[in-house]
């Protein structure tokens, strides 16, 4: 197992470099440049040029890339073009709120989607199953911004029981209840989106397993239906479910751009949006680099999970 992990990590290095090259090109292909974004249009051209020169934007792209790579090797992402603070510092500030929002949503999503999906499969073609598949269809198809705005209208504007956004009440006390209040709406939107999709996967995976011969063997042994479902069937159904939940992990650290934007959540998603708008290349490159690492790490983590969950999986 260990040699396998080491090999996978070594393979990840060239992949990661490839991703940074692509990212660098794409970021720089976007029209406009950072200086145009934050400078007064009446500024003399000379000053603009001087600023560009200072930020290194007049260098050939390849030189700019290697400068960035050199910074990375020294353990940093450079300085933001818009706030001039170190990128690691900016990202570090934003990652906490994002983690809080997404880890709660993903955990809730797992805890709700798996049992409901199993129950829906066990009770296939009953009223319960129809209601659940119907709801999950609606939840999957509903755009997150729509649900988010709808909930804000209902709970913040109409009933006035929850805040419209942000992480804390400005000027208020920073207490636990206040945080929870701010979390409820964004967590609900993210969780509903997650369970809407995942219930369908869990149900389908479970239905597939429920047909298998070995479940008939388990029943023929005299096992209780509960054990047949939750030991013999679930362990098999979990294998494909690992992939589906694994795909949500990048969201954990990457944040959700739409949700953070709607609820003014000061996380990574909002930072990404701001950096795109201000063409803040160093911050964008830093964010992309972290996203790439998360995706690669998730893939490796999922492969290890497969190995644990399915004895038929072998690594050579």
């Amino acid at each position: 197992m260990l040699p396998y992990i080491v090999r996978r990590l070594l393979i990840a290095i060239p992949v990661l470099i490839g991703i940074t090259i692509l990212n660098f090109c794409i970021v720089n292909l976007a029209p406009g440049n950072p200086v145009d974004m934050f400078i007064d249009p009446n500024t003399p051209q000379q000053l603009v040029e001087a600023k560009k020169e200072m930020l290194g934007l007049n260098d050939p792209l390849i030189i700019q890339y290697f400068k960035w790579l050199w910074q990375l090797l020294q353990g940093g992402f450079g300085y933001s073009f818009s706030s001039f603070a170190p990128v690691t510092h900016i990202i570090g500030e934003r990652i906490g709120p994002t983690l809080m929002l997404t880890s709660i949503s993903l955990t809730l999503g797992l805890l709700i989607a798996i049992p409901i999906g199993i129950l829906s499969a066990v009770k296939q073609n009953t009223r319960f199953d129809y209601i659940i598949t119907g709801l999950s269809f609606i939840w999957t198809s509903m755009p997150q911004f729509f649900l988010g705005l709808g909930l804000i209208y209902l709970f913040a504007l109409h009933f006035k029981i929850l805040p419209t956004g942000g992480m804390l009440t400005i000027g208020g006390d920073d207490n636990f209840a206040d945080r929870i209040k701010h979390l409820i709406l964004p967590v609900s939107v993210l969780t509903i989106a997650i369970i809407g999709k995942k219930i369908r996967y869990v149900r389908a995976s479970m239905l597939d397993v429920l047909k298998q011969d070995y479940l008939r063997t388990a029943r023929a042994k005299g096992l209780h239906a509960f054990i047949v479902t939750n030991k013999h069937a679930l362990r098999n159904a979990l294998i494909p479910i690992i992939t589906v939940f694994g795909m949500e992990i990048p969201l954990l650290l990457g944040g959700s751009i739409i949700i953070e934007q709607i609820f003014q959540w000061p996380g990574i998603g909002q930072l990404t949006m701001q950096s795109i708008l201000s063409r803040d290349y160093p911050t964008l490159m830093g964010l992309n680099f972290i996203a790439a690492i998360i995706v690669l790490a998730t893939n490796l983590f999922m492969d290890i999970l497969y190995f644990v969950a399915d004895p038929r999986v072998k690594y050579n």
Partner: peptide, 21 residues
């Protein structure tokens, strides 16, 4: 009764045992 008084052997040995146990 199942498994104790009345037991059963199935046709497909390849799929009659649970692969993950």
């Amino acid at each position: 009764l199942r498994g104790k008084e009345i037991a059963m052997i199935f046709q497909e040995p390849m799929t009659s045992l649970n692969p993950v146990f």
